[in-house]
């Protein structure tokens, strides 16, 4: 199977690789997949006070398409509000990267990673408000 040019481009020059501080209340972390399934994505977002994702980072264990999907996901969500980021669908990733059917699960994982990071961020914020330390 050969890879699309866009997958190769993201794989060779992945955007936004890295780690954000998990304990930062403005950071949401999503960890999806499983080593036994052959792919694990960790996607992190840093959200500013106006609810906009100002930074996003990822690390991925997986094939080229999985790495490309997560790289693309971080690019797309940067600068978006949480509500906007939540509307990203795996089918858009499939289309953009020209993923073949056997690689669709990589895009599903990337969508899950975005949603999971947002959920983690919201949970943290809710906990902060509940404990009265919120601004």
């Amino acid at each position: 199977m050969s890879y699309s040019t866009k997958v190769i481009e993201h794989y060779e020059n992945p955007k936004n690789v890295g780690t954000l501080d998990k304990s930062d209340p403005n950071v949401g972390t999503g960890l999806v997949g499983a080593p036994a399934c052959g792919d694990v994505m960790r996607l992190q977002i840093k959200v500013n006070d106006s609810g906009v994702i100002e930074d996003a980072r990822f690390k991925t264990f997986g094939c080229g398409s999985a790495i490309a999907s997560s790289s693309l996901a971080t690019e797309w969500i940067k600068g978006k509000t949480l509500d906007e980021a939540e509307t990203i669908k795996n089918s858009q990733i499939v289309e953009e990267l020209n993923l073949p059917p056997v690689k669709i699960h990589c895009s599903v994982l990337a969508e899950d990673a975005i949603k999971s990071a947002i959920a983690d961020y919201r949970k943290k914020q809710a906990e902060r408000r509940a404990s009265g330390t919120g601004q």
Binding site: L31, G33, K59
Partner: peptide, 21 residues
């Protein structure tokens, strides 16, 4: 690039993590 390598370096036992299969 691997979150698993990072976790391993931090001393996390990957077998103890509950993965969302």
């Amino acid at each position: 690039l691997s979150p698993l390598w990072e976790m391993h370096q931090e001393g996390i036992d990957l077998k103890s993590v509950v993965w969302a299969a």
